[in-house]
Amino acid sequence: MRRSSVSLNITSPPRQNQSRITPYLICFAMPVRPIIPMTLFSALKAMKRGFIAKPHTADCLLELYGETPEEIFDQSARALLHEMTGRSPEQVAAGKTISYDTITLHAPSLPWLLVDWLNELIYRYDVRHSYTVETRINRLECSPANQFTLHAEIGTVPVADDLAQIQFKAATYHDLRFERTPDGWIAQVVLDV
């Protein structure tokens, strides 16, 4: 699995995002009960990279961690695939030929760019019948007018019906977060099942 290893030239996020920074421990004190043991929380915090799927009445709430915003996008693709198949990208890709494609997306904020990114992957699943098993965020830029652009390369494999568990309708804007914290970056997105 290739990791995001390119140099990143993102500018600072808009001030409004900075001012809404939520300390890490407050996130963990939210009244939503985690579905994984606290030891794993601690491990994730130490790694500063990963994802957690949290209980949400009918849908799926993903919490994403990364040292950089690019890692948030990377982790969101892993989380999406995990929720769809119950497996890691490496497991889904095993023994399969990977096809590569590039994606460029524009949005007026990082949270909206995350929604667009996930909706792009959901669309490709529906129409091209493919799982995204690799992501490389080549460039994440913020223009002076606060327009965010994502340039990414993705690797996909054909859907195997025996892996399929659930299908997502869309990524939503509900309870959407994408923020810098003292320990790195954290994002939250609800997917409609």
Partner: peptide
Amino acid sequence: GRRMSRHQAKK
């Protein structure tokens, strides 16, 4: 109407 999340049900 759901009363339990999908994760809770699977768990």
